[in-house]
Simulated scan of single mutants.
Amino acid sequence: MRIINHPILCNYYVTYRCNATCSFCDIWEKPSPYITIENFRENLKDLKKLGVKVIDFTGGEPLLHRELDLFLEESKKAGFITTVTTNCLLYPKYSERLKGKIDMLHFSLDSPDEEEHNISRGVKCFDKILDSIQITKENNERPDILFTVFEQNIDKIERVWKEITQPNDLVLILNPVFNYNNVETGENLSEKSLQKLLWWGKQKNVYLNEAFIELRKDGGNNINNPICKAASSTIVISPENKLILPCYHLGTKEFAIEGRLAELYSSEVVKDIIALEGKLKECEGCVINCYMQPSFAVEMNKYFWKALPSTLKYSLLKGTWKQLF
């Protein structure tokens, strides 16, 4: 049963450019412009009209955009919840400009071992993460540590929890890796690893959306009975100021926004594409977290109930629930 009939999240790609070369991502390989403040202001008004609650400023590396603080400030003033994920290479430089403007700030960290993390990211950024944690403590801010879980690093969760997140009173977000297109992310997580993640999700200051695990156990999205509501729950805007449908990772259509996002999103041609969400052949078996999470929130089914306890746990830890009312 559908309980929310409007998009709740905007994945706003401020640029595809990145100063890291992560092996499990291909976004950094794309040539890319940066979004403009003029386009952003036009789109912000329409996102409000469409009912969006959260704007995820993403990339690439979002801190490469020198006006990111302005986008965040205007989003906060308009009543949106803001979120940014960064590799921290630039966070020490821009921390003062970003202070108080990000509701959910995520620092990407995949290993407690400096060399291992740097190799996975293709750049030396481990020390910048530790520096950034100290800066946020001085600024009375509380980032999350976003740990992308692979079969080969799942046993490193304990050390990250004990050595980094618990001593600094940070939330550890466990992000099970997913495959898409031709990007090589290694073998799928085993049943043993999925069970281990469920155990970790119940520990103090650890967030794991249990519906992610349930969906993987079920074999992912089924195109004959799709759980994915990517296009109707999430609006994806590219650095070229285009609406991408039905999602970024499997996007098959792009539309120039040209100052008419709300009108475009409500048009018949876009509605026809939205009607195909989760039903395309490429959607079979999909478990992409960034679109499944909002999908779980807009329709009441078993995944909704699996996601609810962990979602409430995170909202209470971070206080973001207050901004939804």
Rank of each mutant, 00 (worst) to 15 (best):
F178I: 02
T165M: 00
I133K: 05
N168W: 07
D127R: 14
N153C: 05
E151Q: 13
K124W: 05
I154H: 08
I135G: 11
E141C: 10
L146G: 05
K156V: 02
N153P: 04
V160S: 01
I129D: 05
Q166V: 00
D169Q: 14
S132Y: 10
P143M: 11
I173G: 01
P176E: 08
N175K: 03
I157C: 03
T185W: 12
I129T: 13
V160M: 09
P143H: 14
V183F: 13
L146R: 14
V149N: 12
N182L: 06
I135S: 11
P176S: 08
P143Y: 13
V123Y: 11
D131S: 11
C125I: 11
Y180D: 06
E163R: 12
F126A: 03
N179G: 04
N181F: 05
N182R: 10
Q152R: 15
T148N: 14
K128E: 04
E138A: 14
N182V: 05
V171F: 05
E138R: 15
D155Y: 13
K124F: 07
L170W: 05
V177A: 12
D127Q: 13
L170N: 07
F147S: 07
L146A: 15
K124E: 13
V177Q: 13
D155C: 03
N182F: 09
N181I: 02
I157G: 01
G186M: 11
E151R: 14
E187L: 02
V177G: 07
I173E: 08
V177M: 12
D144T: 10
G186Y: 14
L172W: 10
L130M: 15
V160P: 00
I145E: 03
L174E: 06
N181L: 12
K162P: 00
V183C: 10
S132H: 08
R159P: 03
V171L: 08
E187A: 07
D131P: 00
G186C: 12
Q166S: 06
I157V: 10
P167C: 06
N140W: 12
L146C: 09
I129Q: 06
K128T: 04
D169S: 10
T165A: 00
D169Y: 10
V149S: 08
G186V: 09
T148Q: 11
E151N: 12
L130K: 15
K137E: 15
E184G: 02
N182Q: 14
C125K: 09
D144G: 03
V123R: 13
E163D: 15
N175S: 08
R159W: 02
V149D: 08
I173D: 01
K124C: 04
W161Q: 02
L130F: 09
Q166E: 01
D144A: 12
V177S: 11
L170I: 11
I145R: 02
N139A: 04
N188K: 11
Q152T: 13
N182T: 10
E151A: 15
V177H: 12
V177F: 09
D131A: 04
N153D: 07
E141A: 09
